[in-house]
Design a protein around this nucleic acid. Sequence first.
RNA 1: GGGGGAAUGUCCCGAGCGGCAAAGGGGGCGGACUGUAAAUCCGCUGCUUUCAGCUUCGUAGGUUCGAGUCCUACUUCCCCCA
Length: 420
Amino acid sequence: MSAAHRFRSEFLRTFVERGAYYDCSAPEDLDALFGKERVTAYIGFDCTAPSLHVGSLVQLMTLRRLQQAGHRPILLMGGGTTKAGDPSGKDETRLLLTPEKIEDNKNAIVAGVRHLLKFGDGPTDAILVDNAEWLDKLEYIPFLREVGKHFSVNRMMTMESVKLRLEREQPLSFLEFNYSIMQAYDFVELYKRYGCRLQSSGSDQWGNVVSGIDLGRRMENVQLFGLTTPLITTASGAKMGKTVAGAVWLNADQVSPYDYWQFWRNTEDKDVGRFLKLFTDLPVAEIARLAALQGAELNEAKKILATEATAILHGRDAADAAAETSRKAFEEGVGAAAGLPTFEIARDKLGAGMAVTALAHAAGLTTSAGDARRQIEGGGLRLNDKPVSDVKAVVTEQDLNDGVLKLSVGKKKHILIKVV
RNA sequence: GGGGGAAUGUCCCGAGCGGCAAAGGGGGCGGACUGUAAAUCCGCUGCUUUCAGCUUCGUAGGUUCGAGUCCUACUUCCCCCA
């Protein structure tokens, strides 16, 4: 990492300056490469869920910055590797996903992140690739003879991920053992197809990245590079990615732009500067000014962080709308601020009156009616901003204002109930 | 192949003489204090139509008035010997 401050290329300087740099396989050579030509680089994601998570955002931002610096990013979807299943990290056997499910996940993931990059056919336009294109067709023996022969089991045994498992005497399946070979092969394949020279990833993928670099040298006699980003944690040491509602997915159908905005708005004080650098495009000088704000003034910086980060993912309009909804709900105290999450309920269901506990549950505000009851007992549930004190309280049409009523748990979780 | 352990509240760790909705943590949620922050303190944390009922302790059977706890088989994992 000592080479980090000596970088001359625009991209790597920015990368370091923004706090995204963790490690690099051959810093000086990569710097020189970035200085003299347009570089094609990739990051891979498996299709295990229908959306990526904020934890993947640093990687996605890497592709974005690459493109901004005039290079060409490849977004590699692991349609093939997901079929094999990546057991790394977990001791439980992950259930195998069906090919249809993988395909659906892939399409959903891509749809969710398309604003982050500009795709197309131009020289710096991003390319979308699926490793199923080549992995699906592999034949076992030919693959072993052409690729497998370059891997030394002795060396693989010394890889951090493998070594750790062996030392802890945790099981390591042969499938898992092979995973890094497939990932290494991806890198070489992308080099052959697109002249891709660099693989970026989270620091946990270091071993797999290095395998790809080695394979490139052995099979194609080319120098490939690896560049990793740090695991982002909050100042309190927790892994990033929880909101009042659960995991922070990137797709809008799972976490709305409003909730996404709120996630960033609730950043801890100490993280504001770091997150602005990592997750927005604001100039660092501007960020330095914002991060220097003290006390309650930092809230202004948090709003900017929220709006900028949301704009990158969901577009400027959605970000501004989320900011406006938040302003009304939290600063003006407008009860039923338009734009808050909304739940619709049929008029006849409410007609005879409905228990608040049942309504809170139906609207997804609480996990069960019992949970809602406990919230009432703890003074945490409010109807139209007034605390509900009676567990058996019933909601009727009289609680409606213009056909809408607001239900809240705690200070931050609000939902509008609209009668239709 | 032989022997010995383990699987608990579907977030995680983890106690549990045959009377257990099941100790204790962590995490999460709510309240107070604040600035929609952190820290701190307090409460809650299986479901329901809650003076009660119902479903939980790897799976399936069995013993018993009664089983997380005892027995049998199975599954998975760990350890030791070969």
